[in-house]
Amino acid sequence: MRAFALVGWAVALAGAVPGLWLAWQWQTGALGFVPDEALLHWTGRFALVFLVATLALGPLHIAAQWRPLFAARRPMGLWAFGYGAAHLGIWAALDQAGIAAFIWAEITTMLHLQLGLAALLLLLPLAATSTNAALRALTLRRWSALHLLVWPATLIALSHAWMVARFENPLVVALGALTLAMLVTRVIAGVRQG
């Protein structure tokens, strides 16, 4: 049990590192002359990486035969949601300067924004039910079914990122390939188990 708690806390703390690094870069002027854009892009990348890493912990903890790794999933998933929410906040407050009319006009017409928002909305109930109490209240069966939403959320978030990338985007391609591979493996395993 100690290993579980240790891994959980370690990941919960480590997840803050990219955000702190970004804040440091921002405050020291290392993000260039238009830092808003860098903040927007980096928080988006962090959210994607944490999201796919959370999914990858499933096969990884089986392959590694070390159960405490499983404890990393909750803090990692929460950080994915946190960076995604920060990404949305930066877009609205800095990129769109917090002007409601501009934000509304963009969201109602641009597909990539609708996709990004949809991914975040799908992750919201997962973040909200990430406590032990919520797990008990839902029962494991229903909780697990609800948390399958992470798959459509990830695929939608990846398509959002793909649409905004101007040229070939190696990160999105790599994360997309990994996600699809994991999804296929999981579906095949599910079919075998009946």
Partner: peptide
Amino acid sequence: VRHPRWHQATERRLPDGGR
């Protein structure tokens, strides 16, 4: 007339003139 991937209705005046 929007670009297929984004709006052209507004712009960011650099470096800090807002939108």
